[in-house]
Structures are given as structure tokens and as C-alpha cells.
Design a protein around this nucleic acid. Structure first.
Lengths: 244, 244
DNA sequence: AAGATGGCAATCGTCTGACAAGTCCCGCAG
DNA sequence: CTGCGGGACTTGTCAGACGATTGCCATCTT
């Protein structure tokens, strides 16, 4: 059964098109965008649709809008590729740093979840999870230690080791027909120790950033949780906050 | 000259009202919101305005909208108070952790900026900055070491030590008539050492989270930059990412 | 009885046209 | 040269309509 490609919302398409144009430099930071009416005409949509797209770009800080004046591209637009919101998988994260991603190590098992995962995934006492542990390399150097927990009951299709080497959201779409609509990540600064220090090939005491994530589907049910230990000298992520 | 209170956009007011109702539990996670037409009627605005508000709530992950079905409050809504986007100042940050904020130490000076600040603020070689360093306490315990750099030329009003004890954005609005429209924060995991370890009263090697921030006004000019060292066991921040 | 099918109402997405509110610029009077 | 309008332009809001999708329910088929 081939997955039916949901037609994407028009406003989403316009939003992506504008973001792409900004990314490519068609509109430079500081520059004023064409007025909404012109944008609407050039994309062949209504002004309401353009406004929905611009609202999203404004919320993410890519543009600012001033009533009576116009819509302007901000400096923050130059960080479009290294923004946290784009960080839906480790490989893109590594590419955003300008490095080549690869998998350094991978193991998986089916088991009863620990208390933490059971609570995060809201599982019953007998339900099992698929645990996938892997290390991502950036230009050959280990930078992320990742542990994904997926409720076993969700997985409907048989899978191979290869299916697990991508990111967990792609795996869920393929083998569980579940789509992650949003996730909640908790950020905890920590230091390397034990097996994680060993697998990341860094000394105990190296500063790490831990992401403790839970992903939900559109029905608001937890479909996976992950522990991501990030090791990296220098900037790890950028966060842009706007207050229109 | 009293600052003229800009009338806030209607959609922004509706957005804030809805967020408040959700925060207070009038609409629980999982619950369906009234249809857009009803919301519009009950707030006395047009449906377009309600839709603009809902679009923002959706983007921040507080609600999801399903065409043909309705708008639903998500689990992520329960994290509304501990979300990173609300983190425009250290005191709120501490309050979000359930602690009482206070200032433990404060010093300031006017000086030539170091290369880092000069570059971030795009200053000429002779321009000076006001540097404010302080330590925030949560229930009496030091948790944040903060260093703000403000271009001296921006400050038009005389100020006292008290003006500096609030957050930098309030200070800028009062004494420089500048409003921060957005900021870019870079997250760096690090460990305590030297004077920062001493002022945060923690041993060298304690994991810290460093925020390297630059704030911009609506004209996209850098108006301040800050270095924030956060010390805290357990969860520091939550990030919600949605993919509608 | 159980499942498949079709229609219907509810809801969000998009369109159209208009007006209000705010900003910017330029000419004009002083 | 300076200050003051006024008009053109742009974003914000309004109103009403229709299209697209979903969920429900009655009906039909097996």
C-alpha cells in the first residue's frame, strides 16, 4: 500500500517557496519584500494565503512586518540553515555544521522499557519497546550519541538494520505509518561519563548537551522518545526568538 | 516624554487571550477548541483575526488544526510556562523553575568592548559599551551569571544602579528608547571555571549551558549582546517544535 | 449481525473585495 | 532651512462566500 501523498497546504507551499528564495539570496537581509498583493499575484494565490505564509516566517524571525511600511528580511534569515527548528534529524544537524554525517555504531534490541521511557511513552507494564542506540560521526569524528525508544506495538511492517540507520521519524513513517507532528525537547547540560564517554571517544568531564525528547503524532499520542548526547566544541544550536 | 503605548495588534490580543485561557485550563490538553466562527463572535473580531492568532498558537505547538475536524489543544500546552520562547529575561526563567528570583551581585563599567562584542554589535573602533555583570539567585542559590554589553551611544537617559538590576530589554526601552524585536541565541555546553565558577559558587568542571545572545531592534540593528552562563541540575529549558 | 457504502453536516482552508490604520515621502508655506 | 500637511502606499482587519476534508450516521449488502 503506497502512502498517499497528502496535498500540502497552499500557504505552506508559499511559505517554503519564500523561505527558499530568501535562503538563496533573492531577497537579502535588510531588503524589503514585494507587497503582499504582488506576492499573491506572482504565486497565483490570494492575499490571505500569502499573509498566512508571512505570519509563519515572521514568527520564526525570518522577516518582520511593519504596518504601513512593509515586510523586511532580517539578519536572522542568514541562520536559516543552523536553526534549531530545522533539527528534525541528526544528519541534517551535522550537515548544518558543515560536516559530512555518517553512522559510527549501531545496535538495537527489543526489551521492556525503563521507568523513564515507560512514563514518557505512557506504556502499560507489559508493553515492550524497540531500543535503537547509535553514534553519529561528523567528518569521521563521533559527535552524537543517540538512543531512540519506540513502542513495539506501533511497528506494523518488518524492518531491517538499514531502516534503523536513518532518523527515527522516517522509520516511524515507513514502518509504523505514524507521522511526528511535534516534539518536546528538554535541554540539560551535562558531562560525559561511562559508556557514552567511551563511545563518543572523549574524556569523562567533557561538556555535553543532552536532549531529552518526546515526539507526538497528530492525535497527541507519544510515538517515540530519545536521549541525544551532543558533543561539539563551539556553537551547537541557534535559537531565534521574535516578539512582533 | 512618556512612551506612547502602541496599540497592540488585535490578533496579538486574541492570541494572548487564548493562550491565557489554555494556561488556566479552560481548555484542557486534548480538548477541541470552539470553531473559528464562534471564537470570532465571542471575541468580537473577524474570523481572519482569529485565524492569525491560531496560526501562531499552532506554530508554537500549543494547538494543532485539522481541516474538516477542528482545532485541538496539545499536551505541549502544559509546558507553556517553561518554554524557551518565554525566556526574555532571567527572572521569568527562574520563576518558571518554581523558584524566587533575586540579584546576588552586580557591577558595571563603561569600556572599550572586546573584539567579540565589537563584532557582534557592529561597532567602530572608538565606540564604547556599557558592560553589566550580575548573578541571579534562585531561592538564594546562584544559578545564572549574566554579562550584558550595550553600545554607550544608544543610552540617551541618565540611569542608576537600580535601572540595571532588571533585565537588559527593559533597560533599553527605558533609557535608550529601543525595543528588542528578536534575538539570536547560540547554545554552547561548557563547564564552570575561573571567576564564573567562583561567582556561581560551584566547582570547576560543573556543567553549564552558555547562551551567547544578540538582540536586534525592528530596524535590524544589534542593540545588545549578552553572555549567559546557566547552572542548574535537571531540566533547563524546553523546546517545542511543530511540523504542521 | 457485521461490515461496506454513500450522503450530510461540521470545520478548516482559500478566495474576493473592501476599508481602516499606520508609514513614508514630497511639496509647500513660513 | 524647517515644520507642516496631504496623498500614495502597505499592512491590519472586516465581511461573506465557496472549496476541501473529516467524522458521523443511516442505509445497504453480504
Amino acid at each position: 500500500m503506497a502512502t498517499i501523498e497528502r496535498r500540502e497546504l497552499l500557504s505552506k507551499q508559499v511559505e517554503e517557496a519564500l523561505r527558499e528564495q530568501i535562503r538563496e539570496g533573492c531577497f537579502a537581509p535588510g531588503e524589503q519584500l514585494p507587497p503582499e498583493n504582488e506576492l499573491a499575484a506572482s504565486y497565483g494565490v490570494s492575499r490571505a494565503t500569502v499573509r498566512a505564509a508571512l505570519a509563519n516566517l515572521q514568527r520564526e524571525g525570518t522577516v518582520v512586518r511593519r504596518q504601513g511600511s512593509g515586510t523586511y528580511v532580517t539578519h536572522a534569515a542568514s541562520y536559516l540553515d543552523s536553526r534549531m527548528e530545522e533539527m528534525w534529524n541528526c544528519e541534517d544537524m551535522i550537515r548544518a555544521l558543515g560536516c559530512q554525517p555518517s553512522i559510527g555504531w549501531l545496535e538495537y534490541e527489543e526489551s521492556l522499557p525503563d521507568a523513564r521511557a515507560r512514563q514518557k511513552l505512557r506504556l502499560g507494564p507489559t508493553e515492550t519497546v524497540l531500543v535503537v542506540r547509535k553514534v553519529f560521526l561528523a567528518d569521521g569524528e563521533p559527535v552524537i550519541h543517540c538512543a531512540d525508544y519506540i513502542p513495539r506495538a506501533l511497528i506494523k511492517e518488518p524492518f531491517t538494520r538499514d531502516d534503523l540507520s536513518g532518523n527515527v521519524f522516517d522509520f516511524l513513517e515507513e514502518c509504523a505509518d505514524e507521522r511526528a507532528t511535534y516534539y518536546v525537547a528538554e535541554l540539560v547540560p551535562t558531562v560525559a561519563e561511562g559508556s557514552i564517554a567511551r563511545r563518543l571517544e572523549c574524556g569523562a568531564g567533557t561538556p555535553l548537551l543532552l536532549f531529552d525528547e518526546v515526539a507526538y503524532n497528530i492525535e497527541d499520542r507519544a510515538i517515540s522518545c530519545s536521549l541525544l548526547h551532543h558533543r561539539r566544541e563551539g556553537v551547537l544550536f541557534r535559537v531565534v526568538q521574535s516578539r512582533p
